[in-house]
Design a protein around this nucleic acid. Structure first.
Lengths: 300, 300
DNA sequence: CTGCTTGATACCTCCAGGGTATGATCCAGC
DNA sequence: GCTGGATCATACCCTGGAGGTATCAAGCAG
């Protein structure tokens, strides 16, 4: 049995007349007669009662008509859904993010993407940089977001956004009384650094900037992410360099101050990583969204 | 697209290897490669990633696999159900019955039929003889049950059972004191006759028997069916000739008495009618059940 | 009885599905 | 580093079956 048989059968059942059905199917009458006979023979069931006025469905034929219509609709639906999946418009996208990534760019980006691809289910997984690479290789995620990413043999990197840096200080801290803080002034105060875990990371960047500015930072505490860092600032552990977007964290007793006299490259990138050999249309669609977002972000 | 494509696709997806899939399908590898390519081209979607180790499903392929399996299962189910319908094992059987037909034979017969064909939905419609014939012609019912049926050009008759007759009398009626009543004795008592409606009917049969026995029955009342007749007996309207099976109606104040000295052919038939040109397997199955029932009934 | 409708049959043609042989590529193992 | 054995892809041939035309058979209306 073939989908052709179903198509022909439905046509004959609807027209109740082989000749008209054949015309509708753009074939001649005899082959259609044969196909219906074949179908009946294969099923071993009489589907039509032949009358001098046309073809009339038997009870079994009625049932088969309902089934055939259903199957044909499902086939159509299957092709349509598969095509949409093939264009990256339908499916599931697993995304690796890091602890405090939810602060700025990523929610906006994901929102824009979900707007454009409403039928793609985006699933977020919080994981470290190393876990993300592992998960990418095992195909548990399709893209990962992180900072300080370098391309690998099998892993590509695409920059998403760039952020400037601020210093978070306690509201009654001496530095809080200045509208702008010179970077070198930070040498005098204990600093909270993040993230813990795989190096090199943001920590090394901060140490590098300090060295360039001629001082050795006094490290008061290493913490997992920016959120924890700002929380410790509130508790008086010290000051903490954070990306611009951290200002969305309004901790009581914490203020953010801009920096002057900063070293070159005094900013952090947010990038996303993906498997270089991943040809999936979903990834392509997502990367397109990333690029569109970055352009919009730059202009802003 | 063809069901063949789906079959091939599922095989390749499951084996993750064209060669093995081809072997499983009992074809050689190149045509299978071609069919998969055709399918991908027709859908416009890459379903597999070709690797040196075999075929790996894309995300769209995964989705299509689920759809394809579903469709294939439905096709199988459709053929199976249609075949069962073609054998009269699945479907709907509309049956016309008359008012008091539910007394004896019909429930037993329907029970036996539903036992043997559990997936046939039997729908009962109460209608008169004339309505049944009309409904048969309009295909609203497939069989009808009634008494005193004669075959027509397009309507066939099959006898279901034969019943003897009893007389229903009030418990304090003179005749109630005898164990057996002679038929001619009924001449002295007003009689309740049924059914009203199209003639000839049971009424004419009773009048015929009375004539043969040499008396003219005194008709006290004509009613619609045996149940009403027995109810009127309880109220003292007279006596009423009823089929054996009416004894299942245990009215307070009504007793049933056997008859002696009865005329020949002193019994009533229950028959069923059907369209002579109805080739439906359901009718055939039902008629088989009727014949089986009649045999069992005779032996009893 | 005849003409018009219906579906069924006979026979032909041609394309597409299946076969064999072979190529291109990649990886494992010596 | 090369070779053998996997993988899938390509080239080409052959045959069955889907579709075509012509015609038949049967029932019904006029």
């Amino acid at each position: 049995m073939d989908l052709r048989h179903l198509r022909y059968f439905v046509a004959v059942a609807e027209e109740e007349n082989i000749g008209r059905a054949a015309a509708r199917l753009h074939i001649s009458q005899p082959p259609l007669t044969r196909q219906i006979q074949q179908l009946e023979e294969e099923l071993g069931v009489t589907l039509f009662i032949r009358t001098p006025r046309g073809m009339e469905l038997t009870q079994a034929g009625e049932l088969f008509l309902a089934e055939a219509r259903n199957i044909r609709a499902l086939v159509e639906q299957a092709t349509e859904r598969t095509q949409r999946a093939g264009q990256g418009k339908l499916g599931r996208l697993d995304v690796g993010i890091f602890g405090s990534a939810i602060l700025d760019a990523i929610p906006k980006l994901l929102l824009a993407f979900r707007n454009r691809y409403p039928d793609v289910k985006v699933v977020l997984h919080t994981m470290t940089k190393a876990e993300q690479i592992e998960a990418l290789r095992q195909r548990r995620i399709t893209v990962g977001f992180n900072r300080m990413l370098a391309p690998l043999d099998d892993i590509g990197v695409r920059q998403v956004s760039t952020e400037g840096l601020l210093v978070a200080v306690q509201a009654d801290h001496p530095l809080a009384h200045q509208p702008v803080v010179r970077f070198a002034e930070l040498a005098a105060h204990p600093m909270i650094l993040f993230p813990t875990g795989a190096r090199p990371s943001f920590i090394d960047k901060v140490i590098g900037w300090a060295t360039e500015s001629g001082f050795q930072p006094r490290i008061s505490q290493e913490v997992g992410d920016a959120v924890t860092g700002v929380a410790l600032v509130a508790s008086g552990f010290g000051v903490c360099l954070v990306p611009d977007s951290a200002t969305t964290l309004q901790f009581p007793g914490v203020v953010y101050r801009a920096l002057s006299d900063t070293p070159p490259n005094f900013f952090v990138d947010l990038s996303c990583i993906y498997r270089k050999d991943d040809q999936s249309p979903l990834l392509a669609a997502f990367m397109e969204a990333v690029d569109a977002f970055r352009k919009g972000d730059r202009k802003r």
